[in-house]
């Protein structure tokens, strides 16, 4: 009985696993509610979720170190505008475009990193600044929605390889693998150390400033990729493209079980969190619920997830304390 209880506790405290099960159940419910579930409709859900998942992946790194990154909205907007204004055709063009937007994200990340890690400006203030600057730049480049994203990107990146494997799945799987590798670098261990207790991390010999700087750089690259995938879907440019995603990235991270205090959680949970949020939009749409209610349900899920995570953390702590008595 006790073994079962600890097993359950360990299971329940794994936020990513819990939310993955929720997602599976929702997917089954969704499949039952629409008349014909094809690989195509499945692909649609994944495609819609990919930009959010990538943005949330980057945001997770920042939240793991106990920070907060608003620049995600600005980077996505700039990336989208650039891709719509300067489309480069063909697979090589798509690769070149990808590198360009990743570079933009990296540049913004470097600025954030310098401000937060080295000049010790609070993350929320520093990234609010970079977000506003980025949005201004996006509007300067393109003052109204318009432009065309390269056809190759629009078609190939939203397709299904060999009729069974959606490209979006491949991309999400690649991000998940990249995270698992990153987690096993010294930098990865540093992320968790800095987020848990910056002083203790410093006393353990971790170069806390470099860890924070790198986290913002990697996050910026993720936002650039999110803008890239968003452009492939919308196929057009919008200087405000990033704004609707801003708060949803935080919601995805929260649903995925990453603690906003830092030090606990991971990217996989956030990716699934993004999938849950997007699937819910689709489900409510399929059920004929007015889109005005979507936000309400998303918020509800987020609050439940956060409260659940808080309860689990409290239980885990009281168990750990009971062990020390």
């Amino acid at each position: 009985m006790k073994a079962f209880r600890t097993l359950f506790a360990r299971f329940a405290s794994n936020g990513a696993l819990m939310i993955a099960i929720v997602y599976a159940m929702m997917l089954i419910a969704y499949a039952g509610s629409i008349s014909s579930l094809s690989i195509n409709s499945f692909n649609n859900i994944l495609n819609a979720a990919t930009p959010l998942a990538l943005a949330a992946a980057g945001q997770t790194l920042i939240i793991l170190i106990g920070g907060f990154d608003l620049s995600v909205a600005g980077v996505i907007s700039i990336a989208n505008v650039i891709l719509a204004l300067y489309p480069i055709e063909g697979p090589w063009g798509a690769l070149a475009s990808l590198l360009i937007v990743m570079g933009i994200g990296l540049a913004v990340g470097i600025v954030n990193g310098i401000l937060v890690a080295y000049l010790r400006i609070q993350a929320i203030a520093a990234t609010l600044g970079t977000m506003i600057v980025c949005q201004g730049v996006a509007l300067l480049l393109l003052n109204a929605p318009g432009g065309w994203v390269a056809d190759w990107m629009v078609y190939e990146l939203t397709s299904v390889i060999g009729g069974i494997l959606p490209v979006a799945t491949l991309i999400l799987a690649a991000v998940a693998c990249a995270w698992l590798a990153l987690k096993r670098t010294r930098f990865g261990a540093g992320l968790y150390a800095v987020g848990e207790d910056e002083t203790a991390a410093e006393l353990s010999g971790v170069n806390t400033r470099r860890v924070k700087f790198k986290a913002f750089c990697v996050a910026g690259i993720c936002y650039g990729m999110a803008g890239y995938m968003l452009s492939a879907q919308t196929s057009t440019g919008d200087p405000n493209a990033g704004e609707p995603l801003l708060l949803l990235t935080f919601a995805a991270v929260a649903i995925g079980g990453t603690a906003f205090g830092g030090g606990r959680g991971g990217v996989i949970g956030s990716i699934i969190g993004a999938l849950v949020l997007t699937l819910m939009q689709r489900m409510l749409f399929a059920l004929g619920v007015s889109s005005f209610y979507t936000g309400l349900f998303q918020a509800l899920v987020m609050v439940i997830a956060v409260v659940f995570a808080a309860i689990m953390l409290k239980l885990a702590k009281s168990r750990a304390q009971a062990g020390t008595e």
Partner: peptide, 12 residues
């Protein structure tokens, strides 16, 4: 910490 051992491909 901070010098976790790494395998040949650089992962801890």
């Amino acid at each position: 910490l901070p010098n976790l051992l790494r395998n040949p491909i650089g992962l801890t």
